[in-house]
Simulated scan of single mutants.
Amino acid sequence: MNRSDATLFSGGHKGAEAEFGKLAEKFGINEVNFTFEGHDIERKVGLKILSPDELKKGDVSMDIVSARMGRNFSKVDTIRKVIQSIFHMVNSGYQVFVVGWILPDNTVKGGTGWGVELARLFNRPVFVYEQDRKAWFSWIDNTWVEVTPIISHKTFAGTGTRNLSEDAKNALEALFERSFSES
């Protein structure tokens, strides 16, 4: 795949999303960061500020989000907008790459987990770098399987925790190296 044909869809938020963006820039990958008015983000390259109507396209009942994730989420306006913007990331990128923690119920911790749930619902290839286990996992045949992923599609989403470990940064760098280094 030609680097100039690839596009990262992310959110520009501190942590994993900002790191995905820095690597996209380093490797010459196009970048789109979805956000909304009043949201404080770290990375502003390729910024796409979603209008209220665009945000509504990603709207889902917080009861559904809570039921799917097996935990309660606040119903405050900002959390809803974050959930709506995650829809745009996952809907735009075919492969979905996430940094976080896989929980015993097979969901992923925090709002990041909604991106994973959407990827599974949309039947997208999804990969989670599990920070405690220091390994990549993919959802295959209804279970998490350890893998060594590559970015192989021209559109991909990158999201994850704000609390990025050094190991996770190194894993993201290695992912981009495997995927985009000249042979």
Rank of each mutant, 00 (worst) to 15 (best):
G160N: 02
A171N: 09
Y129R: 00
G93E: 13
K57I: 09
M89F: 05
V32L: 08
R43L: 13
E146I: 03
R71D: 11
N72H: 14
F180I: 03
K81M: 11
S4C: 09
S165K: 04
N170H: 12
E177V: 15
G15R: 08
I150A: 14
K57P: 07
R124M: 07
P104A: 01
A119V: 04
L23F: 10
G158S: 11
P104T: 07
N142P: 00
F20M: 11
D5C: 09
R68L: 10
G110H: 02
G38Q: 05
D40L: 13
P52F: 14
D59F: 13
F137Q: 00
A18Q: 13
A174Y: 00
G12M: 03
L23G: 09
S4F: 08
L8H: 05
I41L: 01
N72Q: 13
V76H: 12
T112D: 01
K81C: 05
F87D: 07
K48Y: 03
S10E: 05
A24T: 08
F137P: 00
R124Y: 07
H39L: 15
R80C: 00
V116R: 03
N142V: 07
I49F: 01
M89D: 09
P149W: 04
D59S: 12
A171Y: 02
D63I: 11
K169L: 08
A6C: 13
V98P: 06
N123H: 13
S51C: 05
E182G: 05
G12C: 03
V45Y: 08
I150M: 12
S181R: 12
G38T: 06
G70K: 02
W136Y: 01
D40Q: 10
F87Q: 02
E177K: 14
S181E: 12
E182M: 07
P149K: 05
K109A: 15
K14P: 02
M69N: 15
I102G: 01
E117S: 08
A157K: 12
E177Y: 10
G160D: 04
E177F: 10
L55F: 10
S61A: 08
R71M: 14
V82I: 15
S51R: 02
N33L: 09
A171V: 01
W139Y: 01
D5T: 04
M69L: 15
A24M: 09
P125N: 12
Q95M: 09
T159R: 06
T155S: 12
G158V: 12
L121R: 08
A16S: 05
R133S: 08
F122A: 04
K109I: 14
F36I: 10
Y129Q: 00
D77L: 08
K109S: 09
S183C: 06
F73D: 04
T148Y: 11
Y129E: 00
H153E: 15
A157R: 10
G58R: 07
H88R: 06
F137K: 00
R68G: 02
G38L: 04
S4A: 11
G100V: 09
S51W: 00
I86G: 06
V60R: 11
G46Q: 03
H39S: 14
A16F: 08
I83H: 04
S138N: 02
I79S: 09
R162F: 02
D5K: 14
K75F: 02
D105I: 07
Q95C: 03
I49R: 10
E42Q: 11
D132C: 07
T7H: 04
D59N: 14
F27L: 06
A135W: 01
N170L: 13
W144D: 04
F9Q: 07
W144T: 04
S183Y: 13
S85R: 15
K14S: 12
E31R: 05
